[in-house]
């Protein structure tokens, strides 16, 4: 649908990522509209951290997010399925062995 039809001045869309407490990764919280990055940051604070949900915020204008194509999911992710040797449980070691 054309973005131009209703109002060409609609504030751009931003994706919001929030670190919920020190030491954790930033996680996608949702999106919002803002005229610029600073406002996006503040809007994110006002909209997504009203209940102390965060200690750090990232905002990225949505148009800069590149997403993988779900149609290519098979070739992208299936090949990892048979590489179980990447997981520590693949290795059979004696129970007496500690600290490993």
């Amino acid at each position: 649908m054309s973005q131009q039809t209703v109002n060409k001045a609609e504030w751009p869309l931003w994706e919001v990522f929030i670190r919920s407490k020190a030491g954790l990764d930033h996680k996608h919280a949702g999106s919002l509209h803002a005229a610029d990055a600073q406002m996006a940051m503040e809007n994110a604070r006002d909209v997504y951290t009203r209940r102390m949900e965060g200690v750090s915020i990232w905002v990225v204008e949505s148009k800069y997010v590149h997403a993988s194509d779900p149609g290519e999911a098979d070739s992208m992710y299936e090949p990892a399925n048979d590489k179980i040797y990447r997981h520590p449980t693949f290795y059979d070691l004696p129970d007496e062995l500690k600290h490993m």
């Binding site: 649908m1 973005q3 039809t5 209703v6 609609e10 999106s31 919002l32 909209v47």
Partner: peptide
Amino acid sequence: GHGLYLYSAAETLGITRDEMF
């Protein structure tokens, strides 16, 4: 806030918030 979360969800389907308003 709830309105905002929901508008955002709808926007992922290819409609803008302005259009919905």
